[in-house]
Design a binder for these strands. Sequence first.
RNA 1: GGCGCAUUCGUCUAGGGGUUUAGGACACCUCCCUCUCAAGGAGGAGAUCACCGGUUCGAAUCCGGUAUGCGCUACCA
Length: 491
Amino acid sequence: MTNLVRVRYAPSPTGYPHVGNIRTALFNWLFARHHGGSFIVRIEDTDVTRKVKGAVRAILDSLRWLGLDWDEGPEVGGDCGPYFQSQRLEIYKETAERLISQGDAYHCYCSPQRLEEMRAEQVRRKQPPGYDRHCRDLTPEERAKKEAEGIVPVVRFKVPLEGRTRFNDLIYGDVVFENNTLDDFILLKSDGYPTYHLANVVDDHAMEVSHVIRAEEWISSTPRHLLLYQALGLEPPQFVHHPMILGPDRAKLSKRHGAVSILDYREQGYLPQTMFNFLALIGWSLDDKTEIMSRQALVDNFSLERISKTGAIFNREKLDWMNGVYIRSLTADEFFEAVQPYLMMDMAAGEALISDEQYVRKILPLVQERAKKLADVPALTRFFFELQLDLDLQTLIVTGMDVQSTRKALEVVRERLEKLEPFDENSLEALLRPLATELGLKTGQLFGTLRVTATGETAAPPLFQTMAVLGRKRCLKRIEAALDKIGKELA
RNA sequence: GGCGCAUUCGUCUAGGGGUUUAGGACACCUCCCUCUCAAGGAGGAGAUCACCGGUUCGAAUCCGGUAUGCGCUACCA
C-alpha cells in the first residue's frame, strides 16, 4: 500500500492555464498512468485577491482537451476531498494551532508597512531580505497588548536557527540548504487562508501523495516544506523537480513571450495530440531519435529518470512542424470535423459548409497536407469559396507570356472546357497537357496562367485537382473574369 | 546581496571514462520529384561538448574553481 503511486496537479486559479503548468500536469499524469497510480487534481485557491473567475473551468477544460483524466478532484470527488483548498480552511487552522501549541509556530503582529520598510532597509544595506523575527519571542504581555489593539496576526513558522535541511530530488539529486538562510515564513495569513507552504504540506499528506512533481522554481521552498513535515511528525513524499519552459530570451516563459495559455494553442488549431506529444518532449526524451509518439507510447515509456535538468525554450517552429505531421495523419473525416469551427468563422466558407457540405469535403483533402494549424485552413481554401477573385494582372501574365498570348490561351481553354466530358482530374490533365504544346507554351506557363485564373494565387494545390473540385461552372466563370480583366487592359 | 540549480549545433535533445571524425529532430541551404506550393527522398552547412585547472594511459563524460544564465528571496502560487 505504501508504494502506491499517487501524484497531484495543484494549480492555482489565478489565471489561464500556462503551457508550463500544463506540462507539469502532463508529467504527473504520465507518471501516474505509467505506474497504474492515481492522478489527483487539487485546486489551490488560497489567494482570494488573485482569484480569477472562470480559471478553474479553463484549467479543467485544458486537462480534458489533452485527455488528462483525473481520478480524484473537482467534479469526480474522491476519498480525500474536498479538493478545493478554500473548503479545507479548518484543517489548516487546526494544524497551525497545533504548531503554535507545540512551539513550532507563533503569532506575528507586524504590519505590512513595517515589513515593507524592513525589507527596503535590508535591500539598501545589501542584507538578505527576510523577516527579522520581531515577534518570535514576544512575551505574553506584549502579545496581549497587540491583541487588545485589535491587530489580527498571521502565523509564522519557527524555523530552526541552526542545522541544515537536505533532500534527495529524483531529478536534481542531493540538495542542501542551511536553515539559517531561511526566514520565518507565514503559515496562515491574517484572512485565515493558508499560504502555499502550509496547505501544500497538509494536503499532500492528507491525500497520501507519494511523489510531488513540480517545477524547478519550487526547489528553494522545499526545505520549508521538509521542516514542516518534520515539525508535524510526518513522512515527506518524494520530491521531483523538473526544469522550466523558457521563452526565447531564456527567462521563465510568461505572457510577455506571447501565447502561453494552452487554450490559445487550441484556438489556433494545434491538435491535442500535438500538444500532448510536444509538451512531453520538452525536458523529456525517450532516446536519441524518437519524436513522434502516441499517447500510449508516452505512457509506456515515461520515466522520471529521463527528464533533463535544464530549462528548455519553447520552440514554436518545431511545434508547427509536429502539428503538420499530426494534421496529415488525420483521416478525411477527422480533418473535416476538426476544421469545421474554423470554417464557420469565415463567412463564405461557413455558408458553403452549411449549404454544400459535399463541396467542402472535396476541398479539404487538397489543403490537409499544407496546413500547419487548423486556423490556416480558411486562408488556404478561401479561393474555393469566394465568388469573385481579386485578380492581379501582373501575376496573371506569367513569365515569358504577354497579354495577347494569355488571352489566346484562356480563350482556347474556355472553349475546350465547355465540352470536356467528364470534368475530372484525369480528363483535365489529358486535355491541358497537350494543349500547352499546341499553343506553343511550356506546360508551366499554361498551368501557371490557369492557376492564377482559377485561384488568384501563384501557390495553390495541384491544378487539375483544384479545377476538378471547383467544377466546370466556376472554372468557366473565372476564365471569363480573367478575360474581362485583360479586355479592360487592352481597351 | 544571499541561497539554490544549470551549462552538448540557432533551438529541442542523445551520449554519463576509450565503440565519437560527438548521433537525431526543427529551422536553414542544395539537389531530386514536380504544373506552383506543400509533402516526400538524397545531400550540406552548423557544437574547440562555457572556461580554467585536476584525476586518469585516456575526459563531453569524474573532481574543484571561475564565468554566465536562470530560479527563489510576498500576508503569490
